[in-house]
Nucleic acid binder design. Structure first.
Lengths: 217, 217
DNA sequence: GTCCTCAATTGAGCAATGCTCAGTTAGGCT
DNA sequence: AGCCTAACTGAGCATTGCTCAATTGAGGAC
């Protein structure tokens, strides 16, 4: 009171960019434990220590806020699932990074990528961009032709990888590497018509890891 | 006014089951053209010609209403995608029914199965049940062993099929049968270790349909 | 240091929405 | 006809998404 120095959580004036980041951070935290329709703008404002009015200066609509948060989560995921560009096997490295990312953040992953205003065009666009980015990386890593058919197959394949990565978190008998191996097998044998991946190679290398449960934990 | 006979759309007292069905029907219709957060209970009540209060007698929560509608959509889909039990090739018949169902109802499909309160446990459970039902049918149709590993693979495979079915609606060069053929190829060669499906068989039968775009429309 | 200016911030307030509840009435039964 | 159960209504409350005029903190000019 008597000191002009402000308390630790006193209301401070922040540069817009920083405030924006803070608000998105609050959204990231809150939306990982409760769905969007259970999170009120009031609550976000209260946690951030600002008034509701201010929040609407940064995000004119709750929807806009949600889109911003999901976008941030997407970028974060894409960054975490990126392979080191110098890696000798970028395909395996990227896949491995993705599967273990899902492993570490299963609930958040489900919340942000299979939840919320999923029917909304903006959210769907974000999800599509994520998928296309991953498919683009696979294309780059394999040197496959980016024709519409291959893209469509790859998108399907990626959906499979997502499913496996999520299911794996509840399957103690299957390791991250098992999923990665299996995914690569499917990719080479079915999606790309890769002549370098004969079924013999698959039989001796990748397939045994996943054929019998309990081999990889 | 003077006649005791009621107007065609006069408020009538309905047996609970019938009213419930009517309300779900309204939800089915409305939710196929607008996301759940854009549909108010008032609107549903107004369309159904009843008061808001009554709606809450049948569905104590908007969430409950939404769950009921999504559940109805799921059952409808599962019924439409069911193969005739006498069909000589139940696997192909079921897949074909599903892919063409998605073809006919793309927007609704996306709305009900990739939209709404997706993060919500109840909705996720419905989606899981749908997937498990389909996987169960595939297991039955192929005679594969229902061990955890196969189930996990099949769930992944089914995610791929969904993706392909949806993408196909925007790919005029790829026919429903192309998707079905390709899906069966993936199923036999990769998911099940079906010795009856050698790669030679696939090369000569299924693969050509999808290898080059434009072959199947 | 004082003043000024701009923009970050506030908080009162509005309309819509989810939800409750005491009361009303339709419609079947005796 | 009279009754009685339960389908139904509608007023009303609390919350929530959103707006806007007024306020105030912080940095620059002097």
């Amino acid at each position: 009171m008597s000191t002009p120095r402000q308390a630790p959580d006193a209301r401070r004036r922040l540069p817009p960019e920083e405030r924006r980041r803070q608000l998105v951070a609050v959204g990231l935290q809150e939306l990982s434990i409760r769905p969007i329709h259970a999170l009120s703008i009031d609550r976000v404002a209260e946690i951030a220590g600002i008034s509701r009015g201010l929040l609407f200066r940064y995000f004119p609509t709750k929807q806009d806020f949600y889109v911003a948060v999901v976008g941030a989560a997407s970028r974060r995921m894409l960054r975490a699932a990126a392979a080191n560009p110098d890696d000798p096997d970028p395909l395996r490295a990227g896949l491995s990074a993705f599967v273990s990312f899902v492993d570490r953040h299963r609930d958040n992953y489900q919340a942000f990528f299979h939840g919320g205003f999923g029917a909304d065009p903006q959210i769907r666009e974000i999800h599509d961009e994520v998928r296309n980015t991953m498919v683009g990386r696979i294309l780059a890593a394999t040197g496959a032709a980016p024709d519409p058919l291959t893209t469509m197959r790859l998108r399907g394949w990626w959906s499979m990888v997502e499913s496996l990565a999520v299911d794996r978190t509840a399957a103690p008998d299957t390791s991250v590497d098992d999923v990665v191996d299996y995914s690569i097998t499917v990719l080479r044998t079915v999606v790309l018509d890769d002549p370098g991946a004969s079924s013999a190679t698959i039989d001796s290398a990748a397939r045994p890891d996943l054929t019998s449960p309990g081999s990889g934990s």
